[in-house]
Simulated assay, not measured.
Amino acid sequence: MVNPAVANCPKKGDILDWTMKCKFMCKAIDMTSASPQRVQLAPACGPAKGYLIKEVTHITDSIPLLQFRHRCIKSFLRHNCSSQYPVPNIIHYVWYGMRPLRFYHFLSVYSVFKVQKPCVILIHGDFMPSGEYWNFLLKIVPNILFIQQIPPVEIANRTIRHVEHKADITRLMVLKEYGGIYMDTDEILLRTLDPLRRHNFTLSKAFNFNLSNGLILSARNASFLNIWIKAYDTYDPNKWGYHSTIMPAKLSKIYPDLIHVENKTFVRPDAGHTKDLFQNNFDWSKNYAIHLFMRYYKQVYSMISIRTLNCTMGAVARFVLFGHKELCIE
């Protein structure tokens, strides 16, 4: 239903009309009312091959836990997630530290589940997420598996001091091992990445001098990925984003045949224009995804507040949750 006071409203789901003049009915989301029963994927490991099977469980705060390079993971993925594209439809997140899942984390995972429809979502980390958004996510997204691994402590005989650098390295190692699509936990998917899965490796420009590592598509053991990992031989912990964003940009000029580069379709607006995320309404109709840069903005959002939040953050959240970007009728 559309607010009858406004004529010529865009159709539900229209992302070309940015007047934001109309209001739509938005369904209520009650995170506590769902049945305690839920369906989840569980690994079944045989002597020669592995499978993913569906099972019904009553546990709301836990999912199957596997170790990185578990002997059957590759078999699970090959048996369940094969496709005609070099990049398998597998989503990866890195989650280090003991902390609750926030609203924007939930929005990221739910966006890939809804838009990309992945075979499986693998969360790699040392501690499983917690909290009400995590429990709700498990009720509505059945194909999440947790891959437990300890954060790396060094690379090329150099100590990795920052957890962000540990996550930078982990995402590359994960993609080398399994292939797939890596997502930052504040990256929101807006349309399917399938047209890009035909390339062996894809990154997007963030600025003109670097490439973003917040969304990466990679075939397993991709050549560009291996070259990038090798470049960490010169890792300097005092250079914040050099190896994670500037280095791949330099390598893309040397090895252009090994990488497809998108023109900011993963990172628009960029980190220098966060006002367009939290104060203005930015036209993201040509984006594959949008990076929220939540480290720069500490406002707490919720299922309720985004209904009437008149900015890009609100429009993106409503698009993922309700299928339209317009404000909700109160």
Rank of each mutant, 00 (worst) to 15 (best):
T170F: 02
R171V: 01
R171A: 02
R171D: 03
L175H: 03
E177S: 10
Y178T: 06
Y178R: 07
G179Y: 01
G179R: 02
G180K: 02
G180H: 04
G180N: 09
Y182G: 01
Y182A: 02
M183V: 11
D184L: 00
T185G: 04
D186K: 05
E187I: 13
E187Q: 12
E187F: 09
E187P: 03
I188A: 08
I188H: 06
L190W: 07
L190D: 09
T192D: 14
L193K: 08
D194F: 05
P195N: 04
P195Y: 01
L196P: 09
R197V: 03
R198Q: 12
R198F: 01
H199C: 06
H199I: 05
S204N: 08
S204I: 00
K205P: 03
F207R: 10
N210A: 10
L211N: 06
L211T: 04
L211A: 06
S212L: 03
I216L: 11
I216G: 10
R220N: 08
R220Q: 15
N221A: 12
A222H: 05
A222N: 08
S223I: 13
F224Y: 06
F224H: 03
L225P: 12
I227Y: 14
I227L: 15
W228I: 04
K230F: 11
Y235F: 15
D236M: 11
P237T: 13
P237V: 14
K239D: 15
W240G: 07
Y242I: 08
H243S: 09
H243D: 14
H243W: 13
T245L: 11
I246H: 12
M247K: 13
P248L: 07
P248Q: 05
A249C: 11
A249R: 15
K250W: 12
K250P: 03
L251V: 01
S252Y: 00
